[in-house]
Amino acid sequence: MRLTVDGQSFDIDADPGMPLLWALRDLIGKTGPKFGCGIAACGACTVHVDGLPV
């Protein structure tokens, strides 16, 4: 799979069930996205896709 993050493209080999947060942190080394509450309620893990939070 190819991801473009902050204008840079990354080819990653991730399990389809892997959460995007873990792919960003563990596979491409982006540490800005954070794990917070663990249930996506606090917003710490929010990432933007095409300018919109997901």
Rank of each mutant, 00 (worst) to 15 (best):
M1R: 10
M1Q: 12
R2T: 13
T4A: 04
T4K: 15
T4V: 15
V5L: 03
V5F: 00
G7N: 07
G7D: 05
G7Y: 03
G7S: 01
Q8I: 04
Q8P: 06
S9W: 03
S9E: 09
F10N: 09
D11N: 11
D11S: 04
I12M: 13
I12N: 12
D13M: 06
A14V: 05
A14M: 03
D15V: 09
D15L: 14
D15F: 12
D15S: 09
M18H: 10
M18E: 13
M18I: 10
P19D: 07
P19M: 09
P19H: 03
P19C: 01
L20V: 14
W22C: 05
A23E: 06
A23L: 04
L24V: 08
D26V: 01
D26C: 02
L27K: 12
I28V: 15
I28G: 13
G29I: 04
G29Q: 05
K30I: 12
T31K: 06
T31E: 02
T31A: 10
K34D: 04
F35N: 10
C37D: 00
C37K: 00
G38W: 03
G38N: 00
I39Y: 04
A40F: 07
A40I: 02
A40L: 12
A40R: 13
A40H: 12
A40Q: 13
G43A: 11
G43K: 00
A44E: 08
A44C: 08
C45Q: 09
T46G: 01
T46E: 02
T46V: 12
V47C: 14
H48V: 10
V49S: 11
V49N: 06
D50L: 03
L52S: 14
L52C: 09
P53T: 05
P53I: 06
V54C: 14
V54L: 10
